[in-house]
Amino acid sequence: MSNIKYILGHFEDPDDLMHGIDKLQENSVSIYDVYTPMPIHGIEDKLGIKRSRLGKVAFGFGLTGTITAISMITYMLVIDWPMNIGGKPHFAFPDFIPIMFELTVLFAAFGMVGTYFFANHLAPGRAPRVMDLRATNDRFVIAIDARTNTSHDQIDNILKEAGAVEIKHNERKYVSYE
């Protein structure tokens, strides 16, 4: 069995990359991932990537902030130290809307920053997932899992026909920055 884990097709033009994806899908070659230095419109639909769940995650963090604000206000101003200020009730809801809003935004912002670092392997202690360092600079890269696709020569020919300027066979899963 070969020790090649990934076949990388390097493209210089996003149109050639999209053409390469079409050619690979026509020949029933499964694509592991595509790495680009900039966003490409329509590539998610072409690769069959589902819609992101980040909106639901942000809502969850915001809801946690709102519940935290309501809990803190209720405990501090109703249970722990109730004060009579101008005859108002202890929990005057309209007075505390700005506090609830600010904690909602704060929790959502910090939660999404943490989620971003975790999801993109940028958190401390996690290895970054970079197939080829040029993919973040000026190249468009199609990564094909060599273990599930056995005909490596056929894949190389398809990539060359599609306009790949370079084809590499990776033996390691990820390239480290060290």
Results as ranks from 00 to 15, higher is better:
L24T: 02
N170A: 15
L54H: 12
Q25C: 05
K168D: 06
I21D: 00
T104H: 08
A92Q: 07
F117V: 11
L159R: 01
V29R: 00
G87E: 06
G65N: 00
T136D: 09
I144S: 00
A164N: 08
L77K: 15
F91Y: 15
L17P: 02
A135V: 00
T36S: 15
A92I: 02
V78F: 10
P14K: 09
L63D: 02
N137P: 01
D22Y: 11
D95F: 12
R139Q: 10
I31F: 08
K23M: 15
R134H: 09
N149I: 02
L106H: 02
V57D: 00
A109T: 14
P124C: 06
S71L: 15
I40L: 11
G60D: 00
N157V: 05
P89L: 10
S28G: 04
V130R: 07
M38T: 07
R172Q: 11
T74P: 05
S2H: 10
I40W: 03
Y35N: 05
L103F: 11
E102D: 13
S2E: 13
D16P: 02
D15H: 11
M112K: 10
D33E: 15
S151P: 03
N120H: 12
R129G: 00
G163L: 08
G86D: 08
K23D: 10
I142F: 02
V29C: 03
F96P: 00
S176W: 02
K160F: 02
D153C: 01
